[in-house]
Amino acid sequence: MLELRLVQGSLLKKLLEAIKDLVTDANFDCSATGFSLQAMDSSHVALVSLLLRSEAFEHYRCDRNISMGLNLSNMAKVLRCSGPDDIITLKADDGGDSLTFMFESPNQDKIADFEMKLMDIDSEHLGIPDTEYQAIVRMPSAEFARICKDLSGIGDTIAISVTKEGVKFSTRGDIGSANIVCRQNTSVDKPEDATIIEMEEPVTLTFALRYINSFTKATPLSNQVTLSLSSDLPVVVEYKIAEMGYIRFYLAPKIDE
């Protein structure tokens, strides 16, 4: 038996909006740790890993580990039927072939339930080693989204370069080129407005901009985004969900032939 009650139901809605265009079908795994997903995009260039810890739920019952295959675009459609302040409860029976979503309005005057059929999905689970990154940049997530959107009007790739001067985002296209430099800035009124750069060594990596742009759909989940970079390794773009979990996107870099 699975029964998960999420008072801040909008979190689940935002998570689905963040991944539905990147991944078509995926398995949601439920264990004592929490509700999680790991999936690759269809080109196997990007990987998304998300976790909502069991503590994020007001009620968390998961009698045994369960993997539920779902079409994410359909799941997003179901979640869009919930109100912005609704409490969402997920329910599934052991060995069942469906997942039930229950939406309760905050004052309990409206209760809706939607049942979705589960799918069998063959998915490869990748082991992601713990790595010390050469550079870690924390910055306002809205600022990062704005930069990615602006650069995508100019070129198809984004070079992210971290030096002691700051972090530079660059692109180049038919109409010309663009560089945006963000310097470390900790003298802000609110901590979420800070830009913090931790650098062991300078690093520059180039990525397909359309993927990075797609990751920024997670912006409503967190005021800050963290970029972790090392030479010849996928970048990690992480949005922390308060104390409750995270969504991490990994993207393989482009390599000069």
Binding site: L126, G127, A252, K254
Partner: peptide, 14 residues
């Protein structure tokens, strides 16, 4: 020319 690496080139299947 730039070569797009795949994510499996970095992370192994468990």
């Amino acid at each position: 020319a730039c070569l797009q690496k795949k994510i499996m080139d970095y992370f192994n299947s468990e």
